[in-house]
């Protein structure tokens, strides 16, 4: 999108979120929305990250704690299943890892450069020193 200079920007201007009308935004998921170039969804903050979360679905119990507590709408959940992390919008805060209740965790932080396959191959085993942790409502 063509950027305007600061003095060309009209006072009271409207930034449109979408191209054209959407019938019901509240029930339309991101993949079905026609975002306009003015929506921050079209931008990326991936370069903010020093560490990134890696998701191991083998241990995930779909409790959705990561979904509710992610500040950056970066945990992708569809049909009640956690399906992955949106790496354009994740800022690498690490909250999702902290709140993940499984043992071993289903999300772990790795340095941004880490190869995901390698991280998954070397996933830590269950920590037997801890009492069994399970998701709760």
């Amino acid at each position: 999108m063509a950027n305007k200079g600061w003095d060309e920007f009209e006072i009271g201007a409207m930034l449109r979120s979408f191209e054209g009308p959407i019938k019901d935004i509240a029930t339309t998921h991101q993949e079905d929305r026609a975002y306009s170039g003015n929506n921050s969804f079209t931008a990326s903050v991936a370069d903010w990250r020093i560490e990134k979360p890696v998701f191991n679905k083998d241990y995930c119990i779909d409790c959705q704690f990561c979904w509710i507590y992610c500040p950056d709408i970066s945990i992708i959940s569809r049909d009640k299943k956690m399906i992955g992390v949106d790496m354009d919008h994740c800022k690498g805060c690490g909250i999702c890892v902290e709140v993940c209740p499984t043992n071993p965790k289903s999300l772990l932080m790795y340095s941004e450069q880490t190869d995901e396959e390698q991280a998954l191959a070397a996933w830590p085993a269950k920590d037997t020193s801890k009492a069994d942790s399970k998701g709760e409502e």
């Binding site: 509240a26 029930t27 969804f41 931008a43 990326s44 959705q64 509710i68 950056d72 709408i73 994740c90």
Partner: peptide, 16 residues
């Protein structure tokens, strides 16, 4: 419950 809540389509976006 939380599973049901997670089917919500957020109206607040990332890269803020």
């Amino acid at each position: 419950n939380l599973k049901e809540f997670s089917t919500s389509a957020d109206r607040f976006e990332g890269a803020n």
